[in-house]
Design a protein around this nucleic acid. Sequence first.
DNA 1: CTGAAAGCGCTTACAG
DNA 2: CTGAAAGCGCTTACAG
Lengths: 329, 329
Amino acid sequence: MPVTMRDVAQRAGVSIRTVSRAINKQGEITEETRQRVLAAVEELGYRPSKVAQALVTHRTETIGFILGDIANPYFSEFARGVMDTAEAEGYNVFICNSDGKSDKEIRAAESLVDHGVDGIILFPDYASESKLKAFAEIYAPLVIVNRPFYHQKIGLVLTQIRQGAVLAVDYLVGKGHTAIAMIAGPGPIDQMQRAKGYRDVLVSHGLPVADEWILPGPAILEHGAKSTRHLLIKHPQVTAIFCYNDLIAMGAIQACKEMGRRVPDDCAIIGFDDIRFAAMADPPLTSVHVDIYSLGQQATCLLFNMLDNPDSSFPPVYADVKLVIRASA
Amino acid sequence: MPVTMRDVAQRAGVSIRTVSRAINKQGEITEETRQRVLAAVEELGYRPSKVAQALVTHRTETIGFILGDIANPYFSEFARGVMDTAEAEGYNVFICNSDGKSDKEIRAAESLVDHGVDGIILFPDYASESKLKAFAEIYAPLVIVNRPFYHQKIGLVLTQIRQGAVLAVDYLVGKGHTAIAMIAGPGPIDQMQRAKGYRDVLVSHGLPVADEWILPGPAILEHGAKSTRHLLIKHPQVTAIFCYNDLIAMGAIQACKEMGRRVPDDCAIIGFDDIRFAAMADPPLTSVHVDIYSLGQQATCLLFNMLDNPDSSFPPVYADVKLVIRASA
DNA sequence: CTGAAAGCGCTTACAG
DNA sequence: CTGAAAGCGCTTACAG
């Protein structure tokens, strides 16, 4: 049904080879025949099939992006950065949700490779490094975000997460807090950069670090609310909470309100990422700012660089953070 | 480099035809040879190329989704609904942003077709119906969201938008407001269902309808803030604002705060969609609730139904709304 | 039950 | 400058 190269060739009275030449502007063709072919293309509304092209060139002009959950504003803003960058290069992007689960992540990666994507951007879960090593071999070029896994074939985009945690917790200590809890995200705490920064600051100020004051869980609002309720009941002496991200922080605020704890007077709360809605929370969230959109752009640029230079290896891209002080802490 | 069907055939000592049979479980093959082939598949880690399959079957097992802006929580939640539904069917999804611009929307649709997507879900801008008619011919199956364009080949998913507007404005009138403005979205006001509902309610209560009290613009927070500032300066008698969506409503709240107008006492504000963050605004937003995620699921189910039954035509899917009363109005 | 051949719609050496 | 042929990795009639 769709118009094919043969149709165009017939119309223009040339071979398909010549049509290909006219379209792909490889020179070696008279201006006159090119015009004739292009006219036929126009008349017929011909558009080359990327599927057929891909079969021979091994390039689909698509990339895959595996993230935790597109409905999370952090990921959707990041996604906008990658999509805009990809679009500028004429690329389309497949998006897959992993929900931070290793099996979903692997299935997504496999399906993307089945579709022949030219590269993948991945927010990995905390599964073993051996998995990532295997990924690197199969799914190159691969850009990994926010996980310091150094490997020849992997591109890295790293937010200064530990630094952000230090900024946040230092600020709380400076405000006189001595009982500071942390609501963490998914994955093992000992691998979590935010937890490292949190611990380091407490230790450096001679403050106690208690494991029961670090609550891991999924990076969603509900975890923030639930953990805060738990925390404030079990450990009422807590006066400040450092949260894994803004969603969790918003959940924490919600729980404080329910329990009649004023924010920040009775309990200060700091988030992470500074998503758009952080400023609109009640009270407006103090948060560690990350330039999320730009991060998405940078990850995509890196991926394209790797595509264009398959034999080079590229240094990690580091992304700054800064503390944005609002009313919640 | 990747393992091909020939490699598997060689390994198993059969022809590629037999490999194909073993994989696609078409019967007509001995259990014994099938096992032998499957063993070879396993050993080699063979995965069929969807690109090659697509070239002959004309099915890519991908769909395209064109939305306004993935960073907008309404669209990202909707997207989650389509992605989950697609994934359950083994489909991958391309996402494209149109920013509500007709040219971007068309370019996106074309690129999706170039990639051979099996179907498209589209949030159309307000360009002419002739464009949609052309779309219907080229891009079928096509599911259109929130735009009542009836056509044989198009699937429709329609939120009861006018009804939602009626609910919202009726509520404001019931609260005693007589000077109710509207901050509208993109597109011509006379085609906008929310504006119809808004007008109908005012007229039915004998209240004046003024064109200067309806401010169209992009569906973003900044438009809400800017238009509110404009409105409260030019028409200080306004005591309530019905907003196109929650993002705009949040902008309106922001502007009210800046100008020292208390919400809802000095100016009541109602949003639309009831995105997740509506409940967390300050004050929490009164909004017209839409089951966004479910809408995404339904649109995708409809698309798959159309794919499976190319000759049938399907009735529109209508989505209910309800007013959720919080503190902003 | 199994295989050889054609073909999906392109690009890419290779001739002329 | 232009064309005939092979081939990308599969599936699908068609023989045997």
